[in-house]
């Protein structure tokens, strides 16, 4: 039991709203070992925030077990709070306080010694890019700056475990990398255990393990490398001159397993690159669609996520309608 930093077994959480019951967590089990970085991903409303809050003891569970560092979520929530840094998806900072006062406030409630404060606060302010704005009221910071202040505050007491619910929501691309580098350093230096809910698939890629949540259940729980291996086929990437036409064309082609969009690029999944690549190029040319270099790329978590969720939805719908599953045109 104690060997896990975070543990949940057959966890269930129901909300009673009006007359009906919403099952936000539906029999979820997961274990996170000390020093691991665990990423929880899933569609909007899958139950990620609820799972985080139940494990932390901020919401009561309906049934099942959950604990952090061996402390039971429901019975020992104060022990958990002492040892865990938490950032809520919709967090709030005391608005009448300045940036510095916020840091001191969080240091105070976690009884961080003044020696430690002198060392940690400047470091964290520098990380958050807030050193110049120490005396600004937190309420007057930009959205991303507030988020970075909240991140800095959650790390001030050097927690053993952090549970972060969309920590980089609204944070710019450069700061997002700096935040992950900081987490990486804390993991290397102090064996910090990290549990993070995120919609950024590049962040999920940096986790040691990823759980994919769907309608209250964990449908995949594995390393990013293994998750990407589940996805059949290879991905061809290109930027067509006529996006909609190219998408339609590829969708209807033989041997195309799936078509996804990524910004202004198309990602076309095929089984056999050598065979399909020239066919796609020829088909595009015949329609007068030009494109940049059509190349094979490695599958990333972004593609894996979309593919897995699509297939999950399809299988749920098909189960519901009791229709026969259509043969996938596989040619791996």
């Amino acid at each position: 039991m104690n060997q896990f930093a975070i543990s949940a077994t057959n966890l269930v959480k129901e909300f009673k709203a009006n007359k009906h019951v919403v099952t936000a967590i539906n029999g979820l089990s997961l274990q996170v070992a000390p020093g691991e970085t665990y990423g929880l991903i899933g569609p909007d409303g899958a139950g990620k925030t609820t799972t985080t809050r139940v494990i932390l003891g901020l919401l009561s569970r309906t049934s099942g077990e959950s604990s952090v560092l061996g402390f039971d979520s429901m019975n020992d929530m104060y022990e958990i709070r002492k040892r865990v840094g938490y950032i809520a998806q919709q967090f709030s900072l005391p608005p009448p306080l300045t940036v510095m006062e916020n840091m001191l406030f969080f240091a105070g409630i976690h009884s961080v010694s003044s020696e430690q404060q002198k060392k940690r606060i400047p470091e964290l302010l520098a990380f958050a890019g807030l050193s110049e704005f120490m005396n600004r009221l937190a309420g007057k910071l930009s959205g991303g700056m507030k988020k970075k202040l909240a991140l800095a505050c959650s790390l001030i007491h050097e927690p053993q475990v952090v549970m972060l619910d969309e920590p980089t929501l609204g944070v710019d691309p450069v700061s997002r990398r700096e935040f992950w580098n900081l987490l990486g350093n804390l993991r290397a230096e102090r064996g910090l255990t990290i549990f993070v809910c995120t919609h950024y698939m590049d962040e999920a890629e940096r986790c040691t393990r990823v759980g994919l949540m769907y309608e209250g259940k964990l449908i995949v729980d594995d390393s990013p490398a293994n998750i990407k291996r589940i996805i059949p086929g290879h991905v061809l990437e290109f930027m067509p001159s006529d996006f909609a036409a190219a998408r339609k064309l590829c969708n209807e082609m033989d041997g195309v397993l799936e078509v996804q969009t990524y910004g202004d690029k198309l990602h076309v999944f095929v089984g056999d690159v050598a065979k399909r690549k020239p066919q796609i190029e020829a088909a595009l040319a015949s329609q007068g669609i030009t494109h940049d270099n059509l190349r094979e790329i490695e599958v990333r978590m972004e593609e894996a996520f979309i593919s897995l969720i699509r297939r999950q939805k399809e299988s749920v719908e098909q189960d519901g309608m009791l229709t026969q599953k259509s043969e996938m045109s596989g040619e791996i």
Binding site: G42, P43, D44, L169, H199, F305
Partner: peptide
């Protein structure tokens, strides 16, 4: 901000 890759 805060919506999943498919809804995005």
């Amino acid at each position: 901000a805060g919506v999943d890759p498919i809804s995005r």
